[in-house]
Design a binder for these strands. Structure first.
Lengths: 338, 338
DNA sequence: CTGTTAGCGCTTTCAG
DNA sequence: CTGAAAGCGCTAACAG
């Protein structure tokens, strides 16, 4: 299996031209006579020529690769983000290289180093740490952050209005009459969670309802004690509604509610941030703040492409609006029985 | 943003050695005196040296990249497959480059060409076409097929026993007393669907129940008329049960059943091939043939790593066993009323 | 329109 | 143990 690859030199020899002419013919830059081009193209076809990306990258000092690092491929949110990114990148003739970091800064850094080594044209990431964008900037690689912002250097970003979304969700529950709303948020220092917690507080302030801090529970990703923490909230906080700040916490909350045989929305209301397919399949459907996830990916990729074309433009942060989708899981609290 | 990258030559100059010595020090091959190594490593650290992967690949004629192409990132099955692959690749110090082809041979080929251009050490794919593995083999790149086999050249593969799984699922429904079982399969020429259809027939043969061909419906991926076709099956085929040969058809069938306000399993039984999270969230849960999806990914990656290490070993096909998980969606058919 | 030339950054003999 | 030298495949001036 030690097959020597076909090179430009082979094509040149075959077509009786020089390597430069072959190069020009194959990537359509510069002048090449029609017959020469035809012979070269035919040779390429016949011999099965595949350009050597390494040689080209080495020479040009940049590649057509865009690195993408997301938190968790198993989560629909990130999968959809990635697919939005890929759509745009493909159209712009970039190749997406996808890596998941499982919210581990170590893994994230590993991915970034790979992208640096590949001389990626740019990187799009849902950051786990503020270090990567600095590192990338230091090496002259353009970065765009998506979903959350952690960078300490100026860079393009596209995020949703987390505060607004959470405020709307919480206000929805408040309006229904809930006064004890449990908040489940990821235990991170991400802008997403900070914004969602802030929105929750803001809605309370708006309607003059004090926030009981015991109702705010922070849970790490895939934490083994997720269920216990939710149970504790249910037992000790005595909420009449739960607002889950991401889709996996919504799932965990939903499971806890089912385990206790509580009936939605009679015994408990549930609202999630991020709308995913299972939310319309369960009965009742889950009220959720829907994010334009695929669109976020597309915008991020578009931002990167534009930035590479025009390095001078000011860094831009796009803020997209999420939207409340009311389904059956939210309703008025049960009347207080003595 | 035109920052010249730090090269080995910079480190060498900084540490007062030659480039060769710097190379040896940084990747631990060959002899380097302790002090020289220390100076070089310190310089690398101080200057923020990142090896240029292109230069290395160009020189070594192979890279530490493994290309992976899956059908659809948005489908949990493929997402989990990819995550299994990544786990093993990471441990073996390969970098996964992930591409989705949306079951379009054109896109698949594009991805393959990129991997060829990158001089990937190997490729793992859920093939959409038989051409890629031939092309890859012709260029001396190792391939492993996962989930399905389409290659016309010998190559490693890991698949589940589709026939056995489908036979078990169908037998389960037959044993419950169903005699008209609708089969929803993807409209492909893949071994997965062929195997699942064969298993369906086999179970019928086993129990002497004739197969009504009108009960077998083939539906293309994301076909806009998916719902119509399922409705037609329900109307014209009058099945008492449905066996959906993949998770997205199971979802479509479930939606059709719900739209008609049929009650599972009283009015209709449903069994799916491939167990995904929503199947335990809906009520009743969906009976399914569970595949060891993540494990399949791991095995595929392990096979590739072994193959690269030892090109001489015989191509190997690993066959994993799927497993029937009985939940509430399958039960005896309603007694025939006059 | 075409060929010559040089060099991208790295690894690898091969002499010392 | 170390350095000199060559070359991986490609592109981009530049001179014809």
């Amino acid at each position: 299996m030690a097959i020597r690859a076909v090179t430009l030199a082979d094509l040149a020899r075959e077509a009786g031209t020089s390597r430069s002419t072959a190069s020009r013919a194959l990537n359509g830059r510069g002048y090449v006579s029609a017959p020469a081009r035809a012979r070269l193209l035919a040779a390429a076809d016949r011999l099965g020529y595949v350009p050597n990306a390494s040689a080209r990258t080495l020479k040009q000092q940049t590649s057509r690769v865009v690195g993408v690092v997301v938190t968790d491929l198993g989560n629909e949110f990130y999968a959809r983000l990635a697919s939005g990114i890929e759509q745009i990148l493909r159209d712009a003739d970039y190749q997406m290289v996808l890596v998941a970091d499982n919210s581990d800064s170590e893994q994230e850094l590993r991915g970034i180093r790979t992208f640096l080594a590949m001389r990626a044209a740019g990187v799009i990431l849902t950051p786990a740490n503020h270090a990567p964008s600095s590192l990338l900037a230091r090496h002259g690689v353009w970065t765009v952050e998506v979903d959350r912002r952690l960078a300490t250097v100026p860079c393009d970003a596209v995020v949703v209005d987390n505060e607004g979304g959470a405020r709307t969700a919480t206000a929805h529950l408040l309006e229904l009459g809930h006064r004890r709303i449990g908040l489940l948020a990821a235990d991170t220092d991400w802008t997403t969670d900070a914004g969602r917690v802030a929105g929750y507080r803001m809605a309370h302030a708006d309607s003059g309802v004090p926030v009981d801090e015991r109702l705010i529970v922070r849970i790490a990703f895939h934490a083994p004690d997720t269920a216990e923490k939710i149970d504790a909230l249910l037992d000790n906080g005595v909420p009449t509604a739960i607002f889950a700040a991401n889709n996996s916490l919504a799932e965990a909350a939903w499971n806890a509610i089912r385990r206790r045989e509580l009936v939605l929305p009679r015994d408990m209301s549930l609202v999630g941030f991020d709308d995913v397919p299972w939310m319309t399949m369960v009965d009742p459907g889950i009220t959720a703040i829907a994010q334009p996830t695929v669109e976020m990916g597309r915008r991020a990729a578009a931002l990167l492409v534009r930035r590479v074309d025009d390095p001078e433009r000011d860094p831009r942060v796009e803020l997209l609006d999420p939207e409340l989708v009311v389904r059956g899981s939210s309703g008025p609290p049960a009347p207080r029985v003595a």
